[in-house]
Design a binder for these strands. Structure first.
Length: 129
RNA sequence: GGAGUAGACCGGAUGAUCGCUCGUGGCGGUGCGCCGCGGGAGGAAAGUCCGGACUCCACGGGCAGGGCGCUGGGUAACCCCCAGGCGGAGUGAUCCGACACCGGCGCCACAGAGAACAGACCGCCGAUGGCCGGGCGAAGGUCGCAUGCAAGCUGAGCUGCGGUCUCCGCUCGGCUCAGGCAAGGGUGAAACGGUGGGGUAAGAGCCUACCGCGUCUGUGGUGACACAGACGGCACGGCAAGCGUCGCCCGGAGCAAGACCAAAUAGGAGGGCAACCCACACGUCCCGAUCAAAGGGGUGGUUUGGGAACGGCUGGCCCAGUCGUCGCCCUCGGGUAGGUCGCACGAGGCUCAGGGUAACCUGAGCCCCAGAGAAAUGAUCAUCCCCGUGUCGGACCAACUCCGAGACGGGACAGAAUCCGGCUUAUAGGUUUUCUCCAGCG
RNA sequence: GGUCCCAUCGUCUAGCGUGGCCUAGGACGGAGCCCUCUCAAGGCUCAGACACGGGUUCAAAUCCCGUUGGGACCA
């Protein structure tokens, strides 16, 4: 198993990649965010966060991207490989407490079958031990 | 104490866990990881409204265009800042001001009598001239009377008295007219100075005092300007964020500027190879009598010329014209994706001293203080701080108020993108200084 | 990041350079009435806007400044 070597490659940045996911991916809508996923040829999963201008000012957009990047980093060890994921945050996500957002995030990924069989907490324990 | 005024400053704090990015040192490694250390958003980073630095282009001057506009200073520069003048607002501290020029062109709707070297509606006067009426005086004409005069009568004349008419003079009244006036009313945003007194027919800068205005002189000030005096005697309306005039300033574009490296694909320039047919020259072979020559045929495809075919362009199409030779190889140049630089030591910051009313300047010492790239500077939790809501307990008879505890909710505006100096706009809450006004106490 | 432009009824626009009878005109659309057996067409009537805030001026949709919201271009 080849781990993604650095944080920069873990996120989708090029507009051609993002357009490809938007064209061919399957979608999931929740009150806090939208999720688009499709398969890729790379041996690891990648995340992309898209926040448009309609979301708000620069401060709100930056904060949304930071929060969802952090959520992506927390689950990055447990995501099924060869997947490109695109997240569209909604404005409600910044008003809600972090605990509820985190629960909605993990349950959405689990519902799409994107998490590996092992639970996130157990993986954390085994890695630390 | 309350209300205000002008500045300066802060813009939640601490800790734990997990992370991002840059620099640097070490280790592995070969251009990527791991570990240690250090740095990591703002007063507005914003709007992009001004002014610069920097880069490229242009560079000889003018016009055009744009900007600014009281004075003096500061500055790299400024639509900036400081100090002052003038005008306005406020009881005041203070605040506000595109604050040069109306000579030329243009505009000043509606209303109003009249709106730009204006005008006379209502109104006032009617002095002067005229008209009408009354009174007084004087002169003349005419009529009547006579007790008058000259010789007796008549007439005429003269004289006296009365009536009437005309003219003249004085005076009173009226008002239509000629005319005088612009004080008052009314219109308007604005009506050709204001107030008091005199003056007059009524009035009027007509005269005068003060104020305002203009001109001149003097004094003070670097200057804007202020003050004083004399004279003039209201003649000179407003608008330049209307055209314009005067003075000063400005070359254009912008870091997506610009410099360098450089895939794939397409295409450009040069060279080489290959490539259909014909003709000429040439090389070679054969025939041509034994050699040689003229001549003929085959072959090669080095060179030249022509043609055909195909494709592109002009063209709606044909004709016609024109350009190219499709494939392969080499070299060169431009250049896209992408990458590197520009890119953070600067009109830098802090402290002290000196000069200056101040903006600011000078000197000394110390410091290095963000550099990302769809874009880092964070996420979560805990404790504390501040504000609001309602609860409980205590002080109190109760209310108000104060103290304490724990619960819930909230903590502004807002995110560097080449960099500085400003302006403008957004902003919860808090600290502090100056001054003013009001109220109370001593 | 930089450069530039625009904003008028629900929609498309005129008026803005030269400020004044602008109480802002027109078309389509909307509402009501008439006509018709009914609908359409036609006729009549009505409602409906100068993005916002200051300034200049006697007077601002128009001139000047700022704010807000849209749009275009630059590798």
């Amino acid at each position: 198993m080849t781990r993604p070597p650095q944080d920069r490659a873990f996120f989708l940045r090029r507009s051609t990649d993002i357009e490809r996911v938007k064209q061919t991916g399957r979608r999931l809508q929740t009150p806090l965010f939208n999720l688009v996923s499709c398969t890729s040829e790379l041996p690891y999963a990648r995340f992309g966060i898209v926040v448009g201008k309609r979301f708000g000012g620069a401060v709100a957009r930056n904060r949304a991207k930071r929060v969802f990047r952090e959520l992506a980093r927390q689950v990055r060890e447990h995501v099924v490989q060869r997947q490109d994921l695109l997240v569209f945050p909604r404005r409600e996500a910044l008003r809600v407490k972090h605990r509820t957002l985190h629960d909605a995030w993990t349950s959405a990924l689990r519902h799409e079958g994107l998490l590996t069989s092992g639970s996130g907490l157990r993986c954390d324990h085994s890695a630390s031990v």
